[in-house]
């Protein structure tokens, strides 16, 4: 029987209250949102916080998808299901719907949140890869105000983020550029499982139909879900097409650092990183063309 170690439980009634509790209780306190990353870790005694601060009462305040002309703002308490079911978000960032369709299962998606997924910083986690692909920024609030960090700075390594113990992730911001689209693809062993490997791609065209910029983010093939700047450099100014996707796939294969485990061999994962990069770039491009 898996049960967490004894804990003290508090409910936060506002963001300020949550940050006040974190400050007062110190680094033995953890925020709990959906709980679908933290509670399993607590049951396995991999995480042993003394205090849990439940922020689910902040759902009304921190669950939103605000789509503007130059950026999309998503509240950290937005649940997976809300991301999956947002038609407006799928129109501007179809990568979210692609990813959410293959994240866990409906009961888990009813609870898990965007902020919780990012703060867990699991190298196999899909939304970290999605946000990296989209060049998102994370808004972190503390006692002294807010700071905004890029995904590359946010994701410090496996299970490690830029959020300090007395701070809270409250929003994710995604810059919007014209003539762009995105896609996500994952290979898993069974429906809703963690990825064997996964890739996200985003692509923007200029007025001549040439690639203005492109980004790729991989999951589960290295200690981090960082983007691959070399792909962006190789694709900028190129004509979209199979030659470009193949070159990007080769860069992804060379850049990733998979390890052999029960989900597959390092060679297989490397192959997937390349193939999924090729497919998601192709899909993102087809979506831009269809959209224009």
């Amino acid at each position: 029987m898996q049960v967490p170690a004894p804990i003290e439980y508090e409910r936060a009634t506002s963001v300020e209250h949550a940050i006040g509790l974190l400050t007062r209780l110190g680094d033995e306190a953890r925020l709990i949102a959906g709980g679908h990353s933290l509670l399993p870790m607590m049951k396995l005694r991999l995480a042993n916080p003394e205090y849990l601060i439940d922020i689910n009462d902040l759902h009304g305040q921190l669950s939103y998808i605000d789509i503007g002309a130059t950026r999309v703002r998503i509240g950290a308490m937005t649940r997976h299901r809300e991301l999956l079911e947002s038609v407006a978000l799928a129109e501007v960032c179809p990568i979210f719907r692609d990813a959410e369709r293959v994240i866990a299962d409906p009961p888990v998606r009813n609870r898990g949140t965007l902020g919780g997924a990012l703060c867990q910083a699991d190298p196999s986690e899909d939304l970290s890869s999605v946000c990296t692909t989209l060049d998102a920024s994370c808004v972190i609030r503390g006692r002294d105000g807010e700071r905004v960090v890029s995904m590359d700075d946010f994701h410090r390594g496996p299970y490690e983020t830029a959020v300090r113990h007395d701070e809270m992730l409250i929003e994710v911001r995604i810059p919007m550029r014209p003539h762009g689209s995105s896609a996500y693809a994952k290979v898993d062993r069974r429906a809703g499982d963690w990825a064997v490997a996964a890739a996200g791609a985003a692509l923007w065209l200029d007025e001549h139909g040439t690639i203005a910029d492109a980004r790729v983010g991989l999951a589960a093939v290295g200690p981090n879900t960082t983007g691959i700047p070399a792909i962006s450099e190789a694709l900028r100014g190129r004509a979209p097409g199979e030659d470009a996707w193949t070159e990007a796939a080769a860069i992804a294969e060379a850049a990733c650092r998979p390890v052999t485990d029960s989900r597959g061999s390092a060679d297989y994962k490397r192959h997937l990183a390349g193939e999924l990069t090729r497919r998601t770039l192709r899909t993102a491009w087809e979506r831009v063309v269809a959209w224009r």
């Binding site: 439980y9 399993p40 049951k43 009961p107 609870r111």
Partner: peptide, 23 residues
């Protein structure tokens, strides 16, 4: 016990959740 099997699903504010992963 690991939020995989779903035999513990109950409705929580009318939506299914896995009750092994809710305090």
């Amino acid at each position: 016990d690991t939020s995989n099997c779903g035999s513990c699903v109950v409705l929580y504010d009318d939506e299914p959740v896995k009750s092994c992963t809710v305090l």
